[in-house]
């Protein structure tokens, strides 16, 4: 069991499809970041999802998907300024890397870091 289930969380949506969860996060967050599956949040939760996986920030709340094989996808909210700062820091690193590479930043906030198909072109 992930540590998330022992934390204080709010369930925003329950037993929905992953697509519906992503759309909800995109529409209901102040900031949206896109991460790869396996991105770690909190102590030991490795995000499960169809890439690119949206994680939202609203105030100090992190809004993210939580998937259980027998119950579908949930959208959860946990207060965590630390995790939000971690996402922002990751984004800054991505921008710096793209600046070094291309000479101009890739604005990944509010837009997928890559298209769905691009995620598979490793």
């Amino acid at each position: 069991m992930s540590c998330i289930e022992q934390m204080k969380y709010d369930l925003l949506l329950e037993r929905i499809s992953f697509k519906e969860a992503r759309e909800y996060i995109e529409k209901n967050s102040d900031e949206v970041y896109y991460v790869n599956p396996g991105y770690r949040i909190f102590k030991d939760y490795y995000v499960i999802g169809i890439p690119p996986v949206a994680i939202g920030a609203k105030g100090d709340d992190l809004i993210f998907t939580y998937v259980k094989p027998c119950h579908g996808t949930f959208v959860m909210k946990i207060r965590s300024p630390e995790e939000i700062e971690h996402l922002r820091e990751n984004e800054r690193k991505k921008v710096m890397e793209s600046l070094k590479k291309n000479g101009k930043p890739e604005d990944a906030t509010k837009a997928p870091a890559a298209s769905y198909q691009d995620m598979w072109k490793k």
Partner: peptide, 15 residues
């Protein structure tokens, strides 16, 4: 056999 199963498979494929 469900949406969640597809999500798990996509995750493992990406990793």
């Amino acid at each position: 056999h469900s949406d969640a199963g597809v999500v798990y498979a996509a995750t493992i494929t990406a990793l």
